[in-house]
């Protein structure tokens, strides 16, 4: 475990140095993403300026929800950027490189790419948390913890849907649709959805665990809320690892010679 953590930190350090090599591009992506998120959030500012509340949600609740989702998504794509490209790696035989090395294939694969714009999401997420008005140290600690849960569930979901490529071949389209659905549902108030829709958001597309549940945990600490997040993270992560390695048994490639840069 310690060995893998040292390895992981080494990969992240190399990723960061590599991203910083093109400093102007790196800064423009980070700053651009902060601006992008802020502009997207203007929708809710305008909405609540007109309507004040919807299904019990008000603007500070949206700041908190958006903060958690942005920080969780951003942290995930910064640290495990290849989660978005996993199905492509499977379909085009790019796993060969990772299979030949003495490191856990999934962990290595996920961590070898960083998304500079993800850091912009993280920064915006933290700013959004502060704008929500939860200005206490323990709320901030819960925000950090909630972000980690949100990231774990989001990345696990990505691994699950992208692993379909082991069975379906090129499944990028399906993966993209599932990812878009996850992000879209996560940034809307959970109270808007009732009945079977709500059930789907807790199971098939677990957007509630990426947004609303961690946001609620940040707002008010309950052991029940923490148990839900721990349970969902363990289940999703275990399922993702199981499905990936199950699929890996079916992996075939044309022994393409590749150089990892």
């Amino acid at each position: 475990m310690k060995r893998e953590l040292i390895f992981l930190f080494a990969v992240w350090k190399a990723n960061l140095l590599s991203a910083m090599e093109y400093r102007a591009a790196f800064i423009s992506q980070v700053a651009g993403m902060i601006l992008n998120d802020a502009m997207y959030f203007l929708f809710w500012v305008i909405f609540f300026n007109k309507f004040e509340q919807v299904s019990g949600w008000q603007l500070p609740d949206m700041f908190l929800l958006f903060g958690i989702v942005a920080a969780g998504f951003g942290l995930g794509t910064s640290l495990f950027g290849n989660a978005m490209q996993l199905s492509d790696a499977v379909a085009t035989g790019k796993l060969d490189y990772y299979l030949a090395l003495p490191r856990p294939v999934l962990l290595h694969l996920l961590a070898t790419r960083t998304n500079a714009s993800g850091m912009g999401d993280v920064i915006y997420g933290v700013m959004s948390f502060f704008l929500a008005g939860q200005l206490t140290l323990d709320a901030f600690a819960r925000f950090l913890l909630g972000t980690l849960f949100s990231m774990t569930i989001f990345i696990s979901f990505l691994v699950l849907v992208q692993s379909l490529a082991f069975w379906m071949g090129h499944s990028q389209l399906l993966s993209n649709q599932a990812t878009n659905a996850m992000i879209t549902f996560a940034v809307y108030p959970i109270t808007l959805f009732e009945g079977s829709a709500r059930f789907i958001l807790f199971t098939l597309i677990p957007a509630a665990f990426v947004g609303a549940i961690p946001a609620e945990f940040v707002r008010t600490f309950t052991w029940g809320g923490l148990a839900q997040l721990v349970g969902a993270s363990v289940v999703m992560l275990s399922l993702a690892v199981f499905v990936f390695y199950r699929g890996l048994r079916r992996y075939e490639s044309g022994s393409a010679i590749q150089i990892q840069l």
Binding site: A25, G32, L35, N36, F43, I46, K50
Partner: peptide
């Protein structure tokens, strides 16, 4: 600038908000 992603995102959000994609302009102040 070589990298244009940031411009793309910002333009897209201009369309989302000021273009009225997410909310009709009739609901604006």
């Amino acid at each position: 600038t070589e990298e244009v992603s940031a411009f793309e995102w910002i333009y897209q959000k201009m369309l989302f908000i000021l273009g009225g994609m997410l909310i009709p302009l009739d609901f604006f102040p």
